[in-house]
Amino acid sequence: MTKNSSAPAIAVEDLWQVFGPNATAALRDARGAGSPQATAEALENKGLIPAVRDARFEVRSGELFVIMGLSGSGKSTLVRCISLLVTPTAGAVRIDGEDILQASEKRLIELRRHKLGMVFQHFGLFPHMSVADNVGFPLKMQGAGKAERRKRAMEVIELVGLEGREDAYPRELSGGQRQRVGIARSLAVNPDIWFLDEPFSALDPLIRRQLQDEFLHIQATLKKSIVFITHDITEALKLADRIAIMKDGEIVQIGTPEEIVLRPVNDYVAEFSKDVAKGRHARVESVMLRDLPTHMPDDPGLRIGMTLDTALAKCMSLYEPVPVRDGTGTVVGAVQPADLAAALQVDEG
């Protein structure tokens, strides 16, 4: 085992997934074309489908990494490449420094039994098993005894708030309850790495928000390294530490929610954040001046970490620069109220 504590939880390096006949050889030839765009074009001309193109990113330990893209952008394929549900055509996926593409079947099973957990869009519950049996299934694969499975299953079932339904069958549950089972099952073996493939997309909006909040709550205590797939920019911005935006199999931008909203790299990304209330996702720091102006007559009480919305509300009638303080009350920078308003401006284009 090549466990390396300083390595990122997941590292993906020039990962390609090409569908079609003789994909490996075709990709090798096409890469002579140079840039990923040229390679993808060459592959498409041959009738192959490059579903994931040259993906590279890292997920730090304890980080909630969201991959966002529309349907057909390759995000589901990407997460299946990382979890090795499909074998990537080329590239490397390192989990704690270990390249799992090189791992034996046995080692993979080992990893899945102890280290990886996954939640599916349509839940993927086993229809012939009760809630407790579903949740206990990964433990059964580990070889745990019946009593032990039941005990641990009850713990996670309680964690997701389903106590009392442990002997129900999936068909007797509502959509939201089913996904709670899916979450509980993926957490049963206490994995370090957690894949969630559009876990809340099949739920109606109210339930979705409720589960998002509970999910954040669970993550706050468990601190897993997470790859979370979604097509919903609001969900991505709400949950993510960092977001990767995918388009046509390519990652077009990786950044914090704030960076995505305030500094989109191109029109495509900008289009997503267009209808998003930027003030709720960007913070004062993004427009803060480090050089303190000499003349600051007002102090509305801005703090580091305050959202733009809150900051703007405090400076509604002010025109002069105002100071920004950190937690201890020390002035660390200044903000022009006009900059706050400008940052919130939704582009009309």
């Binding site: 899945r112 996954m118 349509h122 993927g124």
Partner: peptide, 15 residues
């Protein structure tokens, strides 16, 4: 059998 049910079995570490 639903795709995801199969995948869930794989991710549970079943042979």
């Amino acid at each position: 059998v639903e795709h995801e049910i199969r995948e869930a079995a794989v991710m549970s570490g079943g042979t």
